[in-house]
Nucleic acid binder design. Structure first.
Lengths: 254, 254
DNA sequence: GTTCTCCGTTTCGTATTTTCGAACGCCGTC
DNA sequence: GACGGCGTTCGAAAATACGAAACGGAGAAC
């Protein structure tokens, strides 16, 4: 089908396709639903489901298959591998409490940004930026903050492998525009976006100097009406920058 | 009903064995380390690693393979499937803040208990009860609280499939002792343990009535010296029971 | 009560893959 | 300049994942 470098283990890919199928169908699905939406034969999917259930990666309940909690066992391990999560977590929470908005922590992996922690304040927008959510880096302030801490070669490589797909009308889809913006972010020390990923919301984000660990960034997401008030925006930027500072100091002291 | 023994997809199991191998080696490992600790040939493990890396389940960094953040993508989905997580999360946090101890939320799956949320207060013990941690239900107060909300048949089935292995000298390993204890827990409405899973710490936990959702329980973990002071223990029990109440009310109102 | 329908489950033969062990080539160290 | 450790590639043989079709049980329809 696709390019054959060191060709992969097909059965593993099939298993993952089944898992992705469950996810695509909203988190739970019957065998027939999966067979209809996926390529492999029903019996094949069934066999994979049985295998995955044995391993705890899939659970059957009320006649439907859903993602198992075993994923958290490995996920929790990946989440705290760097130690960044544990240091940043209290500061992210403080941002959410102080501002009432949605506060996030992101790490780059394989050219994508992954939210490894999010906390909602009491006026926070309800969004899909949940734990484990994986997005293109160019689509949001926190992702652009991450990109701004990479050198141009690395950014170019990410653009090449992951592309610059649009999400809303405001998403940056042009390579030159993105590089210009990253330069601006590096000068100002803060990234922002206005309805670049989700209509009606925007973010302010800053990168975190993690020493020799993986790059990370934090952000605050807010509805645009609050974000467009200049005083409010300055306040949010201040909060994010202070939090980043605290995290950097604590990381350095570990 | 009966285990039909539709034989499993072996390659998928091998992939998972590789993942478990990485986990067993502390979260990161080289190919040779894995080949030494696992059954399959080096080249086989290598091929699986390449496949898993393509999928984001494994990431290579500094010459070592480690668990990828993609696990959080599915894990986050499993975590919040029931809606229990989001309702309980703020109350668990409140418990941690009020008491300064470690507060936990657990759900049963396939006969095991999985911590789907934990929060540390400012005096909390440092423990391995992290997000996604999977333990035998009989080994800890929160697990016994879960068991106390099941009927005897279901408890018997779990004992049969998962056993009653010991963790410390105080772990309950006898079936009758466990059933007696569960009866006591049902009467008192609260479960506790003293060094039954980890020497030096104990817990108090209560089950949560989740309606028709999956059963859940919350607990507070503390060092035994604080837990053995009667006034303190009563205080912790009170906190846990109140939190459970709030969660139950909020779940019913959804 | 009978038929119909849907869905999970099982069977089975074969072509496809996984698997293994050996060999290769890279890189830093002795 | 050889050595040792490592990730990577190769080819052949064995193992098994796969698909098509059939089974059977539970409701729904009539």
């Amino acid at each position: 089908m696709t390019r054959a470098k060191t060709d992969s283990v097909r059965a593993t890919q099939t298993s993952l396709a089944v898992l992705s199928g469950i996810k695509a169908l909203g988190g739970s699905a019957t065998l027939v639903e999966l067979a209809d939406s996926l390529e492999p034969a029903k019996s094949t999917i069934y066999k994979h489901l049985v295998t995955l259930e044995d391993e705890g990666l899939v659970v059957e309940r009320d006649g439907e298959y859903r993602i198992g909690l075993r994923w958290l066992e490995f996920g929790g391990m990946a989440q705290r591998y760097d130690g960044i999560y544990e240091v940043a977590k209290p500061e992210v929470r403080r941002m959410a409490v102080e501002t009432g908005e949605l506060a996030n922590l992101m790490i780059e992996e394989q050219g994508y940004g992954i939210y490894i922690h999010t906390t909602s304040g009491d006026q926070a927008v309800a969004l899909d930026t949940r734990l484990g959510k994986r997005i293109h880096l160019h689509k949001t302030a926190i992702g652009k903050a991450l990109l701004s801490s990479f050198d141009d070669d690395r950014v170019a490589e990410i653009i090449e492998t992951r592309g610059l797909p649009a999400e809303t009308e405001n998403t940056i889809t042009d390579r030159e525009t993105l590089f210009t913006e990253l330069e601006t972010i590096r000068e100002r020390g803060v990234a922002d976006d206005t309805e670049e990923r989700v209509d009606g919301t925007g973010c302010v984000g800053v990168p975190i100097d993690t020493g020799d660990r993986r790059e990370a960034a934090i952000s605050i997401t807010a509805p645009i009406n609050r974000l467009q008030s200049p005083g409010r925006k300055a306040q949010l930027i201040d909060t994010v920058q202070q939090a980043a500072n605290v995290i950097e100091v604590n990381l350095a002291h570990e």
